[in-house]
Amino acid sequence: MTRTTPARPVAVEAVFPELAAYRGRTTRLHPRPGRPGRHDSHVGGPMLWPIDEPWPVCREPHASETEGYAPKEIRAARAAGVWPRSRPWPGAGGPGEGGPTPFVGLAQFFGRDVPGLAAGPGGADLVQLFRCPRTHGRYLEREYLLRWRPAAQTERADRFLPAAPEVPLLRWEHELPEPCVVHPEEVDTYPWAEDDTLPAALIARIDAWDDAQTAAGGRYALNYQGALSIPPGWRVGGYPSWASTGPLDIA
């Protein structure tokens, strides 16, 4: 199924010619519910994981939890079109409490499928993304893991893990990924205009243009960040979007 990104409402480089020097490419994934296999690029599907390799676990200290959602009940509730019920989080010494916690597989992408996927260490062309189902620290931070692999070598493994370890509970219902196939599409992208992502004079011009759009069209008028810079949806490669935090220096 082909998915096409709509054209931008205005020609970006006609309004800001300087942005031509910053034009990049990103790959929109257009994930849609499906039944991907372990040899496919996907979101929420089975990982290409050799059976003799230990599944990754999070060993960092976890924040205390009070309740969560069981993966099997999440799937059943989704199939029935209802909201799953939460369950009390196991106490100290129970499954998943106070010890290593299996990571949840979120997605995997092969370089052969995703043009925007940069090569990993040693030229690895398969990347697998995981997230710890629990929170960390006072601000409920999340722990992620990237595993890079050479795709051809990994696909020659004798046997693969039939199913990932199931975590007892997830902190939030929406964090169990729905298996989705992807439909990659390359599109142009431009940097987020904040802090030092672009020259200060250009950012000032963009801000002035945004103000003029708002004055003419109200709060729902076009703006650079939302309509011209970063394409919407799931993406690989290109410039990052800073819609939540802004580009922060955390070094």
Rank of each mutant, 00 (worst) to 15 (best):
R3D: 08
E13G: 02
A14M: 11
A14T: 15
F16R: 01
Y22A: 10
T27S: 09
H30Y: 14
R38T: 12
H39T: 13
S41I: 07
H42L: 08
V43W: 02
V43R: 08
G44K: 06
G44W: 10
G44L: 07
P46I: 15
P46R: 06
P46H: 11
W49R: 09
I51K: 02
D52A: 11
E60Y: 03
H62Q: 11
A77F: 03
R78Q: 11
W83P: 00
R87E: 14
W89A: 14
P90D: 07
G93Y: 02
G93Q: 03
G98C: 10
T101S: 09
V104M: 08
F110Q: 08
V114A: 06
L117E: 08
G120M: 03
A124F: 04
D125I: 05
C132T: 13
E143G: 01
T154I: 10
L161T: 01
A164S: 13
P165S: 04
R171H: 09
E173S: 08
E173W: 00
E175A: 03
E175P: 00
P177E: 11
P177V: 10
P184G: 10
W192V: 08
T197H: 07
P199I: 11
L202Q: 09
G218S: 08
G218H: 05
R219I: 12
R219M: 11
Y220T: 15
P240S: 12
P240L: 13
T245V: 06
P247S: 04
D249N: 09
